[in-house]
């Protein structure tokens, strides 16, 4: 697969560790994320996936190691967005939610209107645009959060367990929106999931995380055919990991 240009990437984690209350939650994480297909951070619950995204997005500072971008940190933050596992929607219409972050960043009204319309269409929410965001279904809310990040036109998008709370149908709709975004926008997507089937459908490469350690990073086809670590093999077989 030919990798499109992305001025932010590679994103490098160099010896990242995170401790809290004397507990090591992430330990010596090293990887590099390049432009191209979707990178999926896969692992059981409690592996440290969300923490990893928060550190990458700059919401949390690591206790050791450093995050390096191909550009300045400020540029990287301005050009990336994070969709939380449980996004906080504003007490406004769906459309106003999508418009909000762009407005805060000082983007002009006409440009915002264009972006909002595109993001709503891409997430199949156009018809619900006037509805109060908090009255939407869980699946629609999750797509709205995606649309809100989309309208910022980021070069890098972090998605934290985007479909964790969704039933299969709603999850499928969300995955469609993610694929649309990936194909049309040239945006790099980094997402976490504990859902193997979803990882198989979306991943270009897999970063397998377990108990705060990165056990492997490989192309998705490689990972699912020949996982290198014993823990990953167990995980793929559906054995409960602690």
């Amino acid at each position: 697969m030919s990798a499109p240009e992305n001025a932010l990437l590679p994103l490098r984690f160099e010896g990242i560790g995170f401790e809290q209350g004397g507990e090591t939650l992430l330990e010596d994480i090293n990887f590099s994320i390049e432009a191209g297909a979707i990178s999926v951070i896969l692992g059981p619950n409690g592996a440290g996936k969300t923490l990893l995204l928060r550190i990458a997005n700059g919401l949390l500072a690591p206790t050791s190691g450093r995050v390096r971008w191909a550009t300045t940190v400020a540029t990287a933050r301005a050009a990336s967005a994070l969709v939380f596992q449980r996004p906080v929607l504003l007490r406004r219409s769906a459309r106003a939610n999508v418009d909000f972050p762009s407005r805060v960043r000082g983007i002009g009204r006409r440009e915002r209107e264009r972006r909002t319309a595109r993001a709503l269409a891409g997430t199949q929410l156009t018809e619900l645009a006037a509805r109060p965001a908090r009255r939407l279904s869980v699946g629609e809310q999750q797509r709205l959060a995606l649309a809100r990040a989309w309208a910022l036109e980021p070069r890098l998008l972090f998605l934290d367990e985007p479909a964790a709370a969704l039933d299969p149908a709603a999850g499928r709709l969300l995955e469609n929106a993610i694929e649309t975004l990936r194909d049309e926008g040239g945006v790099k997507i980094v997402m976490t999931t504990h859902d193997l089937a979803q990882a198989r459908r979306l991943a270009g490469e897999v970063l397998f995380l377990h108990r705060g350690r990165l056990l492997e990073q490989s192309a998705a086809t490689e990972f699912f055919a020949r996982p290198q670590s014993a823990v990953a093999r167990e995980f793929l077989k559906g054995v409960a990991l602690i």
Binding site: N57, R77, A78, P87, V88, F100, V104
Partner: peptide
């Protein structure tokens, strides 16, 4: 809202009117 607004790059004082 704090973390969500922070992820949009909104600081404490800008958050008040919101």
């Amino acid at each position: 809202y704090a973390e969500q607004l922070r992820s949009f790059g909104i600081g404490v004082w800008r958050a008040i009117p919101t």
